[in-house]
Simulated scan of single mutants.
Amino acid sequence: MSNQNKSVKIENIDLGEFPLLLAPMEDVSDPPFRAVCKANGADLMYTEFISSEGLIRDAAKSVQKLDIFEYERPIGIQLFGSDIETMGSCAEIATRANPDLIDINYGCPVKNVACRGAGAALLQDIPKMVKMTEAVVKGTHLPVTVKTRLGWDDNTKNILDVAERLQDIGIKALTVHGRTRVQMYKGDADWTLIGRIKENPRITIPIFGNGDIDSPEKALEYKNRFGVDGIMIGRASIGYPWVFNEIKHFLKTGEHLPAPTISDRIEVCLKHLDFSIRWKGERVGIFEMRRHYASYFKGLDNFKQYRAQLVTADTYAEVLAILETVQQVYQPEGVLS
């Protein structure tokens, strides 16, 4: 395979052999979540996607998403929008936040993005997608990458053509989610066309695959079957940042790392919470952490009562007390169903 034993580079950013990327996920991939993923093996991470219109308006939510920290590097700021000129201007604004690269979202399938002509909607207008990408490339000195899908629906799986055209106007890497927009997140991701992009001798930029990678075995199988340069992981990392190091260890040795213990889960969950509070303040930090507890303790028998307590706790001291109880109840390893 072309990706074997070779360091993967996005321009001058060296990601090592077969990098694992953390997917940009709305309301998930904030700095606290990225911190625990980085500590557990993520090689390249992205901000949550940022609305170009929001950035131009200086909307507080969009501007706060530009927050990046030195230890996160390499990190990309991901932008989405429907207006070519606005996207070009936003590339300049995002560049001032000093990320390592700028990424464009042409993959988000959710209605309030796609119906506004942004995200995956651009898959219905490839000439516009090309022009928009060109505006972003011209708006920054940083490498520009793209994340997209196979096409809008089964009749428009035009990713092979899109990959060539985007490379020709200067993008430095491409991530493809193996579904169409119409599929949303349903059915299985089909990586066949992603593999065909890699087989195209005209394509020289790194190609990353995304969709349904939730185990070390699957990562190895897809690496070998489709020849991608690396894998982007999204949903499998929520509440389970260990997935990155588990995959790396398995690719290297063919063996599994031990599963995280209850102590491991609590320790990482607390690190996540601590950062969330430092970043957003106690009230908002605790509130935004609530969406993660079920994932951190997934698979534990009879955890429902503790989850209910965690998602209603209002202070750090309360959360700590509940987690200490969880530690005692499930000590030393917990009863996994």
Score class of each variant (00 low, 15 high):
P258A: 02
C115H: 15
A121I: 13
M289R: 03
S337Q: 15
D27P: 02
P109H: 12
F33V: 13
L310M: 02
V144W: 04
V243R: 13
G81E: 05
V176D: 03
L150S: 04
R202S: 08
L142N: 02
M45D: 00
D190R: 14
F18D: 12
G239L: 05
A294H: 13
R235V: 06
C115N: 07
E11A: 13
L55N: 06
R235Y: 06
L101P: 03
S337T: 15
L123Q: 08
M129T: 01
T145S: 03
I286K: 08
A135N: 04
S89V: 09
D14R: 01
A173I: 13
A173Y: 08
M87T: 12
P206N: 05
I207P: 02
R73F: 09
Y316C: 01
A163T: 04
Y240D: 06
S7R: 15
V319S: 00
P206I: 04
Q4M: 14
D168R: 15
T145V: 06
S82E: 10
F69V: 03
F297L: 02
V8I: 14
K248E: 08
L21G: 14
I194L: 03
G170H: 09
D14A: 07
R165W: 12
D214N: 15
D58Q: 15
A60Q: 14
Y240W: 11
Y306A: 06
Q183P: 05
G41H: 10
R307I: 11
N3V: 04
K147G: 09
A321L: 03
R225H: 11
A94D: 09
I77H: 03
S82V: 02
D58A: 15
L257G: 08
P216V: 11
T145H: 07
A163Y: 12
P143F: 13
V335H: 06
P258S: 01
E255M: 15
N158G: 06
L122S: 06
D229E: 03
P127D: 09
R283T: 00
A313R: 00
G76D: 08
L44C: 07
V284N: 03
F33I: 03
E221V: 12
S7L: 11
L55V: 12
N12Y: 10
K248S: 08
D161I: 09
C269M: 09
Y330D: 04
M1P: 08
L320Y: 04
P258I: 05
F208V: 12
K6P: 04
Q167V: 02
S337P: 09
G299H: 07
V144Y: 01
Q331M: 15
R196A: 10
V130W: 03
G151T: 15
M184Q: 01
L300T: 08
L323E: 05
Y296C: 00
L323A: 11
D153I: 05
N112H: 15
I13R: 03
Y185G: 01
